[in-house]
């Protein structure tokens, strides 16, 4: 009886968004009189940090500090239409809508600045800190906050923007499967190391190391959060989770967290990742979606590592200790027969 170590790899692509029956999201933005901007959406934040990412995209586009952005979302009386938060679509679709709305609002601010400074819009630049200045003449500048206030109280104008992004519908050809199913693709490659206990069949995952290419990251810490949480979830899918332990029989389905097995802190492997950024052709600032894909490559990487460790190929999930022990028995018998 032994503890055998092995390494496995897996590489995956992942589609950003779907096309559904046409897949749109909208955003509305308006300036307050103090120069902060309210971004009104209808997308839900599942914990991945949608509000944060949208605030960053809005701030970047408007040229104001992040703290000047207020995100109000998911009230259908105020928020414009959005398909929902799924399919790794939100940063891409909603982000594109926010960027478009911010550009429109920015145009209104620039228009005002150009009138006050008596230069053309083309000669104005944003300093990214809430100021607009004439290119090459930093002393000729206006604060966006002041402009927003004067827009309301002096000029009677709105500083506002509307944005929409839609992935057009693509019908699937029922004969050939021809379709345009996504907007772009992100990539991952994972290397997993495991240790198989040949006495108990237990698999310890020692490390999950991955490279990701997810386009431009808006908030690298949040991307890392998806990668880490996904690595854990992938490990959990690979080795633990099932609602039907006796599938296809429905017996012994777990009803609680005690019965629905998932790894805890004591089972954690080393989780490490590097992230490459190759801007996508159609995401706001070149983003791709990273939300879903992070559980994917760890699963086959772990299963391949198990084979490398002990020679047992398990082709069904989850890979239970019982499956490993049966595989080891079969190997032993095969050897005995040969």
């Amino acid at each position: 009886m032994a503890r055998l170590r092995g390494t496995g790899i897996a590489a995956v692509n992942y589609p950003t968004g779907m096309n559904l029956g046409g897949d749109p999201s909208q955003a509305l933005i308006h300036a307050t009189t103090s120069g902060s901007f309210n971004v009104v959406l209808a997308a839900a934040d599942l914990g991945q940090g949608l509000r944060t990412v949208m605030a960053q995209i809005a701030a970047e586009t408007l040229g104001v500090p992040y703290g000047q952005i207020v995100i109000q979302t998911a009230d259908t009386d105020t928020g414009p239409h959005d398909m929902g938060t799924f399919a790794s679509r939100a940063t891409h679709r909603v982000g594109n809508a926010v960027k478009a709305a911010a550009i429109e609002a920015r145009e209104a601010v620039l228009q005002l600045a150009s009138e006050e400074l008596e230069v053309s819009i083309a000669d104005l630049v944003l300093d990214g800190r809430g100021g607009i200045q004439v290119a090459g003449s930093p002393q000729k500048r206006r604060d966006i906050a002041d402009l927003a206030s004067r827009a309301q109280f002096q000029y009677g104008r709105t500083i506002a923007g509307r944005g929409v992004y839609m992935k057009p519908k693509s019908d699937v050809d029922p004969e050939t499967g021809a379709m345009d199913p996504d907007s772009t693709q992100a990539y991952a490659c994972t290397v997993a190391e495991v240790e198989v206990d040949t006495e108990t069949g237990a698999v310890a995952v020692l490390s999950i190391r991955s490279a990701y290419e997810v386009g431009q990251q808006v908030n690298p810490a949040l991307v890392q959060g998806q990668i880490t949480g996904g690595a854990w979830m992938g490990m959990s899918h690979a080795l633990y989770e099932t609602t039907e332990p006796c599938y296809p029989s429905r017996d012994h389905s777990p009803k609680d967290f005690a019965g629905y097995l998932m790894p805890g802190m004591a089972e954690l492997p080393i989780i490490e990742a590097v992230v490459l950024e190759v801007p996508s052709s159609n995401g706001p600032y070149g983003v791709k979606g990273v939300g879903e894909m992070t559980a994917n490559s760890p699963i086959p990487a772990i299963v391949n590592a198990i084979y490398h460790a002990c020679g047992v190929r398990v082709d069904s999930l989850p890979v239970t200790p019982e499956a490993i022990l049966r595989g080891l028995d079969a190997l032993a018998q095969g050897k005995g027969a040969a």
């Binding site: 914990g47 880490t228 949480g229 690595a231 979830m233 967290f257 802190m265 004591a266 954690l268 989780i271």
Partner: peptide, 22 residues
């Protein structure tokens, strides 16, 4: 780390993979 894992062994998190909690 073992003390932390022991103390938090009754607390489930479905999102983070626990690493940032530790």
């Amino acid at each position: 780390r073992a003390d932390i894992a022991e103390a938090l062994s009754g607390n489930v998190c479905r999102c983070t993979g626990y690493v940032p909690i530790i």
